[in-house]
Simulated assay, not measured.
Amino acid sequence: MRVAIAGAGAVGRSIARELLRGGHQVMLLERQLDHIDPDAIPDAVWVHADACELSLLEEAGLQTYEVVIAATGDDKANVVHSLLAKTEFGVRRVVARVNDPRNEWLFDASWGVDVAVSTPRLLASLVEEAVSVGDLVRLMTLRQGQANLVELTLPADTALAGKPVRVLRLPRDTALVTILRGGRVIVPTPEDPFEGEDELLFVTSQEAEEDLRGALAEHGLKT
């Protein structure tokens, strides 16, 4: 897969290294000349360009990339780059970094963003996930805000222990995708039993999330 990353700071470089290790082709776009260091990541294509300049993006061949990641430290630059990538270059998938949570409302489909990643919000969700037992925690928003990845850790003394997955009547547009149990990742079948301290990962639409809370509450989970 060909991935273009706007911003070659610490975040952009870290993403580039991970993608290269996965066998992907990576281009790093950076407007500050002193941040360009091909020796740091020799397998990446380095381009000195402003991510918001249409002509420079054309010269870089942005239209040949399948995924764009707007990873600069400037939210305004990230939304403008996302919009250009989607509308001018037809990039299939645009992922944008949100630096200031107050700007999250900007990062949606109207600005060309398919997935917005807010580091402060993600860290807060992970903290909640680590300490919350019996509470439904939203980990991530997927598909331009149309669905959420949510997690619930069952209490050790849960009433669901020993009962099969099928007893949990999930609302429409909701799926239990994984049960994490110790070091195991379980793709659940209807007959698999729950156990205390299971971590349940659901994908649910925005509209169905409240109904999911109600379905879990029927089994004594406060959510």
Score class of each variant (00 low, 15 high):
V3C: 04
I5R: 01
A6C: 15
G7R: 04
A8R: 05
V11M: 15
S14L: 12
E18S: 15
L19G: 09
H24M: 11
V26Y: 02
L28D: 05
E30R: 01
R31T: 08
R31V: 06
I36E: 03
I36Q: 00
A44V: 01
V45L: 14
V45D: 10
A49G: 08
L54G: 06
E59N: 11
E59I: 01
L62Q: 10
V68Y: 03
D74R: 03
A77C: 09
T87C: 01
V98R: 07
D100T: 08
P101E: 10
E104P: 08
D108L: 01
D108N: 14
A109N: 01
W111N: 14
A116D: 06
T119Y: 12
R121G: 03
A124F: 09
S125M: 06
S125I: 02
V127E: 08
A130V: 00
D135T: 12
L136G: 09
V137G: 04
R138M: 11
L139E: 08
M140C: 04
Q144N: 11
Q144I: 01
G145V: 01
Q146G: 15
A147V: 04
A147L: 02
N148I: 07
L152P: 05
T153R: 15
L154W: 10
P155G: 03
A159K: 15
L160C: 03
A161R: 11
V165P: 08
R169K: 14
L170F: 07
T174V: 04
V177K: 12
T178Y: 04
G183L: 06
R184C: 11
V187D: 09
P190R: 00
E191P: 13
E191A: 14
P193M: 02
E195M: 07
E195H: 15
G196A: 10
E197P: 00
F202Y: 06
V203S: 05
S205Q: 04
Q206R: 14
E207F: 03
G214N: 13
A217S: 15
E218V: 07
G220H: 05
L221I: 15
